[in-house]
Simulated assay, not measured.
Amino acid sequence: APGRPTAGAVTDRTATISWPAATPGAAPIAKYEVYRQRGAVSEQLGETAGTSLTVGNLEPGARYTVNVLARDTAGRVSWSSPPLTFATGSPAASACAVRFRADTDWGNGYVATVEVVNTGPDAVDGWTLTWTWPTGWQQVSSGWSATWTQTGRDVRVTSTADNRRLAADGGSASVGFVGAYGGPNVPPGAFRLNGTVCSVR
């Protein structure tokens, strides 16, 4: 099998996957195939004769689990490499921006402030901010200045009558919550305002 892959040059849309070469068997290695794992489904992202591949068309702020297979000139396929999980970043420019800041932390909980900024040319009248926690042990316990809900790892924050309007070119609203966690408290990788992936400041 190929060695454990690594991810480099990760942006919001691309990543370069590299891995140690497999040891050839009875026939020379013809190519390597890179696959993304979606639960029980395996989706091929590309193939190459070398030991690195730059994959594109990725989703900003998403987590990807990939592995690599080697195929020899006789058509035989190797065992899978160990898996690699990596996350893409947020876009450098967007019609919205988010500032996410932990204000206080006591080891298994914290208070955070989330500022939503409309950087687009048009005012926003009514907004919903969403994100997905990277782990299953992170939780919004309670929040203020918005309606807060969490289903599984998905968080949904909806504006109130007082802050539903965000002026164009920099209008903002500041909301907050008390969070809880039972392991590493990893910040969200991406935020979406009314479905648009925001830049993170």
Rank of each mutant, 00 (worst) to 15 (best):
W79P: 00
S174H: 05
G120A: 03
L129S: 10
F100Y: 15
S199W: 04
T119E: 01
Y181N: 04
R153E: 07
V10E: 09
T85P: 02
V155C: 03
G107M: 05
G61L: 11
V155I: 08
V114N: 00
S174V: 15
I29W: 07
W106C: 14
A30I: 00
P2D: 11
V200D: 06
P20D: 02
G107F: 07
T88W: 08
P121S: 10
I17N: 05
S142H: 11
P188Y: 02
T104Q: 08
V200P: 02
T135E: 06
G136Q: 11
D12N: 10
T16G: 05
A26E: 13
P28S: 04
V77S: 03
R76Y: 10
N194F: 01
E59V: 14
G39V: 11
Q37N: 11
P83Q: 12
W131E: 02
G3Y: 13
G8T: 15
N108P: 05
T196V: 15
V157M: 06
V175N: 10
S174L: 14
R156Q: 09
A161G: 14
N118W: 07
A1T: 13
R201D: 15
T11P: 02
A9T: 11
L45F: 03
P28F: 00
W79A: 12
A7C: 12
P60T: 11
P187F: 10
A123L: 01
V34W: 07
S145K: 14
F177T: 05
S159E: 02
S78E: 12
W106H: 10
E43V: 11
V155G: 08
A22V: 13
T23G: 06
A112W: 10
P28W: 01
L129C: 08
Y35R: 05
T104S: 13
N118A: 02
V77P: 06
G56K: 09
Y181H: 10
G176F: 00
A15Q: 10
A87G: 05
W137N: 15
V200Y: 06
I17C: 14
S18K: 13
A87E: 03
A167M: 13
A1N: 09
D72R: 00
